[in-house]
Amino acid sequence: MPVKDQIHAQIAGALAGATFPIATPDDLIAAFPDGANTTCRVGDLKMTAGEAGTLLKPSDFPFKSATDVADVIVSRAGL
Score class of each variant (00 low, 15 high):
Asp60Gly: 07
Asp71Ser: 02
Met47Glu: 01
Leu15Lys: 10
Thr54Gln: 12
Thr67Leu: 07
Leu55Trp: 01
Cys40Lys: 03
Thr19Gly: 14
Gly50His: 03
Lys57Leu: 12
Pro2Ser: 15
Leu55Thr: 06
Pro33Glu: 10
Lys46His: 04
Gly13Lys: 14
Ile11Asp: 11
Gly50Arg: 08
Ile22Cys: 13
Asp26Tyr: 04
Ile22His: 14
Pro25Trp: 08
Ala36Gln: 10
Val3Ile: 11
Ala52Thr: 00
Asp60Asn: 14
Thr54Val: 00
Asp60Arg: 06
Ser75Trp: 02
Thr39Ile: 06
Ile29Asp: 07
Phe61Glu: 09
Gly50Val: 04
Val3Lys: 11
Ala66Val: 06
Thr38Cys: 05
Arg41Glu: 13
Gly17Met: 14
Leu56Gln: 00
Gly78Cys: 03
Gly13Leu: 14
Ala36Val: 08
Arg76Ile: 04
Pro33Leu: 10
Gly50Phe: 08
Ile73His: 00
Ala14Glu: 10
Ala18Ile: 12
Ser59Leu: 05
Asp60Phe: 07
Ala23Leu: 11
Arg41Asp: 04
Pro2Arg: 08
Asn37Ser: 15
Leu15Gly: 09
Pro21Ile: 13
Phe20Trp: 13
Ala16Pro: 12
Asp68Thr: 01
Leu45Met: 12
Val69Glu: 02
Ala14His: 11
Gly78Ile: 02
Pro58Gln: 04
Cys40Tyr: 00
Thr38Ile: 08
Val74Cys: 09
Phe20Met: 12
Asp60Ala: 06
Val74Ser: 01
Gln6Leu: 11
Cys40His: 02
Thr24Arg: 06
Leu28Arg: 14
